[in-house]
């Protein structure tokens, strides 16, 4: 479904702030799988997701989704294939417009926008039916402005909108990180449910070890722009939170060791 080959990206190349965000990343994701990407801050996990979504163009490498090479596609063109939920619960919806107007835009994600009236009673009834599955009572508030909803409600609706037309690939960028614990749990549960019901292919960046262990069927760990661990199948099933923490520790110690040794060598030879 998703195929990434030799993907590299360096930000601020040639300056003192140069950051090697992705270095020759290879990743393949099968249809119908749900992959979590974890890693420390600055490990490149969000960069990887944004590269797939098309927020920037990579320096090297290729990305293809559903056998389409999308490497040079603009961000908006990729929406035909990709549904997205952002970390900021306000990023995925238009606050000044009604819930119904927001959803009607998602009902034509990546398609032509004709000059026909967008909303009528029939469309709204269809909407209400699907919004009811969120069990938040929002189906009776379709005409309310999106801005009057809580972060959790908006994130749940963004998730519903991203999957309204079945995307080839669903990208979730720490989509529960900015929510209170209760809403985060609710949105996580909705995520699991929607992905299972529609048999979606999904990638989720997360900081929550619990989510990484419970929700997906594959966990990829990134560090300094590289994939350093890849738990799948049986290995993933046995995976527990302490295992992940231990791996984090090991990676960080190795890095610390590397740097200390480098410093020692510098002192001795320079």
């Amino acid at each position: 479904m998703l195929e990434i080959k030799g993907l590299s990206k360096t930000f601020f190349a040639g300056t003192v702030n140069e950051v090697r965000a992705l270095s020759a990343v290879d990743l393949q994701i099968e249809e119908g799988s749900f992959t979590a990407i974890i890693g420390t801050n600055g490990s490149g996990k969000s960069t990887l997701l944004n590269a797939i979504a098309g927020s920037f163009l990579p320096d090297q490498g290729r990305i293809s989704v559903a056998n389409e090479d999308i490497t040079s596609w603009s961000e908006f063109r990729r929406a035909v294939l990709i549904g997205r939920v952002f970390q900021n619960p306000f990023a995925g919806t238009a606050a000044d417009m009604s819930i119904a107007e927001n959803i009607v835009m998602a009902m034509r994600r990546g398609l032509k926008r004709p000059l026909t009236t967008a909303l009528n009673r029939k469309v709204k009834e269809e909407m209400a039916e699907r919004v009811r599955t969120l069990k938040m009572g929002l189906e009776d508030r379709l005409d309310n402005p999106m801005g009057t909803l809580s972060g959790g409600q908006r994130q749940a609706l963004t998730l519903l909108m991203a999957t309204w037309l079945k995307p080839k690939l669903l990208l979730l960028d720490e989509h529960t990180a900015a929510l209170d614990p209760k809403s985060a749990a609710k949105v996580a549960e909705l995520t699991r449910q929607i992905i299972a019901d529609d048999n979606l292919t999904a990638m989720m960046v997360t900081h929550s070890m619990q989510q990484a262990v419970e929700l997906p069927d594959r966990v990829v760990m990134m560090h300094k722009g590289n994939i350093v661990e890849d738990y799948r199948h049986e290995q993933k099933k046995r995976l527990r939170i302490p295992d992940l923490l231990e791996t984090f520790d090991r990676i960080q110690k190795r890095e610390l060791f590397d740097e200390t040794v480098a410093d020692l060598l510098k002192k001795q030879y320079i």
């Binding site: 979504a53 908006f76 929406a79 919806t93 238009a94 994600r109 990546g110 926008r113």
Partner: peptide, 14 residues
């Protein structure tokens, strides 16, 4: 929506 949330509009393929 373009004036309201550009990020959202792009994510919807516009």
């Amino acid at each position: 929506a373009t004036g309201n949330n550009v990020q959202m509009v792009r994510a919807q393929g516009v």
